[in-house]
Design a protein around this nucleic acid. Structure first.
Lengths: 96, 96
DNA sequence: TTTATACGCAAGCGGCGACTTGCCTGTCAA
DNA sequence: TTGACAGGCAAGTCGCCGCTTGCGTATAAA
């Protein structure tokens, strides 16, 4: 089921996390927390972000790599391909 | 905000409705209800589907056209383009 | 061996969203 | 005009999700 994918994309904080990881791949949890606070004005706690990352990982949008006490997070946008393959995007007619 | 878009895609029933409308565009509410029950085994009530269609319309994924007492629903997949534009889909590395 | 750092686990709370229920409006046929 | 048909509105219920809180584990520095 691709339910995990759409569930992951359903939250604004998770989408911002994806933005951050696309801009700078391979961050740790604390780095992501810091950047979300600084650049995006988010106030979420570490645990909240950790849970968000777990959801993103379930959806296959984020892969993790352990190294000592650090855990690096890497984006993988390829699951998004399922979306455009499911509903082909037609050429646009401008809004009326 | 594209929050409406992701919110709309967040529900499995709404995604099935999109499937149905892509396969057969311009259906009325009752037609959609019937097809969801027949082909997809969904048991949602008419009001539930109506609310789903309202969400899809808010997201710009469905446009409606009134004709007498009928209301025809048309798909518009173009809002999905925002997704692939926001997070470019990279060429795939197969899973380990 | 202590102490700090980076992260994990799990229970609990609050709010939002999906769905139902009941009734109402508008259109068309008989 | 009466009735059936297609759809709309609004309040209420209930489960899930995002978040907090508190504690626990593992790695590395002092």
């Amino acid at each position: 089921m691709d339910a995990d994918l759409f569930k992951a994309l359903g939250d604004a904080t998770r989408r911002t996390i994806l933005d951050e990881l696309v801009e700078r791949d391979g961050q740790t949890l604390f780095e992501i927390c810091g950047r979300l606070t600084m650049k995006h004005g988010l106030t979420s706690s570490r645990q909240a972000i950790s849970q968000h990352l777990a959801v993103l990982e379930e959806a296959g949008l984020v892969h993790t790599r352990r190294e000592g006490r650090y855990k690096f997070h890497h984006v993988d946008t390829s699951p998004l391909r399922a979306i455009v393959e499911r509903w082909p995007i037609d050429a646009e007619e401008a809004d009326s």
